[in-house]
């Protein structure tokens, strides 16, 4: 049982294989050598740190610490989302945090308690890995979804006003942008659900098989996690738009321009 461990020296050998790329890069005029080195160095450092503290957390396996860890991850994700959407960080923070928190926690409880049926729902090994996968997808979905929604609205403000004049309620006039935002958020997930296994095996399944799980068991986990990701991501963006837009309009349904960043991130 278990994966064959990789020695440090062996890992260095593999990384050394990148060096020829630098030479080839020079011949075709790509000047990214420095960027590649920095990226690889960052990855090694970041993952080393993650490896060390995950080991520590797994050994402790304290329920409260595990929950705190998940919540800290959500706060970090919220800050990351706040940096890349058109509305100001301070305005976006609470709605985005809640939009991640509620669907993710509910899904984790359901997943660990009723699907995997582990005795300790908050066991580090499950809650941190599954939670991390859900959150990574939700982070990405909320980033592009919220950007699509608010950029669409900023770009089409006159259309939005015209719809209000034709008798639309605020919700009816916002609906096209809402729809677009949810679609750009979940469509990549639906596409990967449809093609999964055809070309490559997903990372989680690969890891489980290497770890000794038989394929027929590993696919169950993969199916379960894909469905969980899809559902969670859907409600993440749905709540994010509903909650963030509550505060973004005045009683005349005008978008509050003062809540938008001066320079809209692309």
């Amino acid at each position: 049982m278990g994966v064959e461990p990789i020695g440090t020296l062996n890992l260095i050998f593999l990384i050394a294989l990148v060096i020829p790329i630098f030479i080839f890069n020079r011949s075709i005029g790509i000047t990214q050598t420095k960027k590649i080195i920095i990226s690889i160095a960052r990855m090694v450092i970041q993952l080393t740190i993650v490896g060390i503290y995950l080991q520590y957390i797994f050994d402790l396996n304290n329920i409260w610490l595990n929950i705190a860890y998940i919540i800290v991850m959500m706060v970090v994700a919220t800050i990351a989302i706040g940096g890349s959407i058109p509305i100001k960080r301070t305005i976006a923070f609470l709605p985005v945090l809640i939009s991640l928190l509620i669907p993710n926690i509910l899904m984790l409880l359901f997943f660990n308690g009723l699907v995997i049926q582990i005795d300790q729902i908050f066991e580090a090994k499950y809650i941190i890995t599954i939670g991390g996968m859900l959150l990574g997808n939700g982070l990405n979905g909320n980033m592009i979804g919220l950007s699509t929604f608010y950029n669409g609205l900023i770009k089409n403000e006159e259309v939005y006003h015209y719809d209000l004049m034709l008798g639309a309620t605020k919700f009816e006039a916002l609906k096209p942008y809402f729809k677009e935002a949810v679609l750009v958020s979940v469509n990549p997930t639906i596409a990967s659900i449809a093609t999964i296994g055809l070309v490559s095996l997903p990372g989680m399944m690969t890891g489980q098989i290497l770890g000794g799980t038989i394929p027929i068991e590993a696919i169950r986990y993969q199916i379960a996690i894909m469905i969980a990701i899809f559902i969670t991501k859907y409600f993440n963006i749905y709540f994010a738009i509903v909650l963030s837009s509550k505060n973004m309009f005045n009683t005349k349904c005008q978008m509050k321009k003062q809540f938008l960043k001066e320079e809209v991130p692309s």
Partner: peptide
Amino acid sequence: VTIRKGNVKNYLLSIQSYKHNTL
């Protein structure tokens, strides 16, 4: 005349579904 992009007929039908529609 900032009407929404897309099929005009569908747009007209969606206007008719607006809560405060007077058309």
